[in-house]
Design a protein around this nucleic acid. Structure first.
Lengths: 216, 216
DNA sequence: GACTGTGAAGCCATTCACAGCT
DNA sequence: AGCTGTGAATGGCTTCACAGTC
C-alpha cells in the first residue's frame, strides 16, 4: 500500500513517457528499457524507474518493460482509460484553435460545449459545435458529466468565468488567460501562459553569455 | 557580485510579479509590500523577497517596494527593455491564433514572419503577414535579428523545423508540437504541451478522493 | 511598528549505486 | 550479463525566523 505523495513533475513525465511508448508501439517495438525511454524523452534513467515505481512494478529485471502493457498501465494511471468531455469558455481565435486541435482526440479529450457572452459569436459554429451563451453551461455540464473546463476568455473576464464553472460543478480548470485565478475548494488549476513562457526565454537569451552581470 | 544560479521557477514568477505590478500601477498604487504581491499572485511572501534578492535590493525596509520602479527593474531583468521579433513556423489554426494573440504586443513581442511548407497556405495573409515558404526564413531572421522561434507545426515535422531554425541562428524555441525536441548547443527550449497539461488534470481529478488506490 | 533582506533549517525531487531478479 | 527496483546521498528550492533598516 503506497501512500507516498506523487510529485506533480512525475505526472507530467508519465504523460510524456506514455506518448513516447505509443510511438514505439506503432513502430512495432515490443520491449524497452528505462535507458531507452530516458534517452528518448531526455531525462535520467533512474528518474524513469522512480517515476514508475510510485505506481507498481511494471518491468522485468534483465529484460525491461513490455511496451504495450506499460502503455496501458500509464494510460490507466493518468485516468485515460475513459473519455473526458471538456467545456470551453471563449470563442475567440484561441478557442477556435483549441476546438480543432488534433492532439486532443487521440488522448480521449473532446470539447462538448463552447461558450461565449459576445452576441456576435453566439450561434456561430466552430468545428461542428454551436457557440452557446454562458447560461447554457450548467445544462451541458450535467448532460455530459463534464469535470474539466478550459478558460480562453480575455483576462478581465477570466476570474468570473472560472467561478461560474466551479459553481456549476467543474473540478479542474485549464486556464489560458494571463491572470492568476483565485479559486478555493481543491479545484485543480493549470495555467498556460504564453507571455510568461516566452519571458523565461528572453531572460535566458539576454543573459546567456554575460553570466548575470545585470548592473541595473 | 552575485553569481548564484537563478532557479528557472524564479524567472517564471518574476514574469508573473511583473504583470501583477503593472496592473497595480494602472490602478494608481505606488507602493507595495512583499506580502501584498505574494497574496496577489498566490505565493509565499518570503519567496517574493528571495526571488527579487537574486538581482538586487529593490525595496525599502519598513516601507516596501515602489511599484513603478520595481516594474521597470523586472522588465529589464526579463530582457523586456527591448522588443523581441519572433518567427512562427506553422500556419494552421494554432499559428493563426498566435498571430492575433493580444498578450504578446504589450510585452514587446511581435511575430515578424510566418512560415509553412503547405502550398495551399503560402501566400495567404494572417494578421497582415504573408505566409512564406520555409526557404525565406533565413532572410527574415537576418533582416529582423530574430533570436526566438515558435514551432507550431504537426509533430512529425517539428524536429526538422526546429533544426532548420537553429541552423539559421535561432537561439530559443517555443515548441507547441507534442514531441520532445532533440536539439543541442545550448538552445533554450520551452514546451507548451496541452495534452500533457490536461493529463495532469485528469490524473488529479481521477484520484482525488480515492487517495491513490490504483489497483491496476 | 512595519517591512526588507538573508542565513539557517526544512523539505522535496533527483541522482547514485547496488542488491536482486531473469 | 543485463536490467529493474530502491535505500542512501545529493542537490536545490522553499520556508522560517530574525537581524537590520526606515
Amino acid at each position: 500500500m503506497k501512500t507516498l505523495r506523487v510529485p506533480e513533475a512525475t505526472i507530467t513525465r508519465l504523460s510524456i513517457y506514455s506518448r513516447y511508448l505509443e510511438r514505439m508501439d506503432q513502430n512495432g517495438i515490443t520491449t524497452v528499457s528505462s535507458d531507452e525511454i530516458a534517452e528518448g524523452v531526455g531525462v535520467n534513467p533512474a528518474k524513469v524507474r522512480k517515476d514508475l515505481a510510485y505506481f507498481g512494478e511494471f518491468g522485468t529485471r534483465g529484460i525491461g518493460y513490455n511496451v504495450r502493457d506499460l502503455t496501458r498501465y500509464l494510460r490507466k494511471i493518468l485516468g485515460l482509460d475513459q473519455n473526458w468531455p471538456l467545456i470551453l469558455a471563449g470563442a475567440g481565435n484561441l478557442g477556435c484553435a483549441l476546438c480543432t486541435y488534433r492532439g486532443f482526440n487521440s488522448r480521449g479529450f473532446q470539447i462538448v460545449g463552447v461558450f461565449d457572452n459576445d452576441l456576435g459569436k453566439i450561434g456561430k459554429k466552430i468545428a461542428n459545435l454551436d457557440v452557446l451563451p454562458m447560461e447554457k453551461m450548467p445544462e451541458v455540464i450535467k448532460r455530459h458529466g463534464v469535470r474539466i473546463g478550459i478558460v480562453a476568455v480575455p483576462p478581465a473576464a477570466a476570474q468570473e468565468v472560472a467561478e461560474y464553472m466551479v459553481m456549476n460543478g467543474i473540478e479542474a480548470i485549464l486556464n489560458f488567460a494571463p491572470v492568476i485565478l483565485n479559486i478555493s475548494g481543491g479545484i485543480e488549476i493549470r495555467n498556460v501562459d504564453l507571455s510568461v513562457t516566452l519571458e523565461s526565454l528572453t531572460f535566458n537569451v539576454s543573459f546567456k553569455a554575460s553570466q548575470l552581470r545585470l548592473s541595473i
